[in-house]
């Protein structure tokens, strides 16, 4: 199955990259942008038997840095 891991900066952690993208969008003339946060999408192809606990451990041990990032696991049934 294909699993998507969405990694994003925790609220309150400054995102200089997001801020630069924000300025760029405004520079292109887009209005009404309140905030931009840049994250990361990791797609895993894993055995169907892979447990949620294992996916959780993969995120905590490597894919996300829990000091500054949150993660969300998106599994096939939740992929529209």
């Amino acid at each position: 199955m294909k699993v998507r891991i969405h990694v994003s900066l925790k609220p309150g952690v400054l995102d200089p990259q997001g801020r630069a993208v924000h300025h760029s969008l405004e520079g292109l003339g887009f209005k009404g942008i309140e905030d931009v946060r840049v994250g990361r999408l990791i797609e895993l192809e894993v055995a169907d038997s892979t447990s949620d606990a294992d996916l959780d451990r993969m995120c905590r041990q490597l894919l996300a840095n829990m000091v500054i990032e949150n993660y969300r696991i998106e599994k096939p049934e939740s992929v529209a």
Binding site: V13, L14, P16, Q17, V67, I68
Partner: peptide, 17 residues
């Protein structure tokens, strides 16, 4: 060292990019 947990915190992209 921070990534391995031997020191606390994290090193992020420089504020001015």
């Amino acid at each position: 060292l921070t990534e391995s947990g031997l020191l606390p915190g994290a090193l992020m992209r420089n504020a001015n990019q």
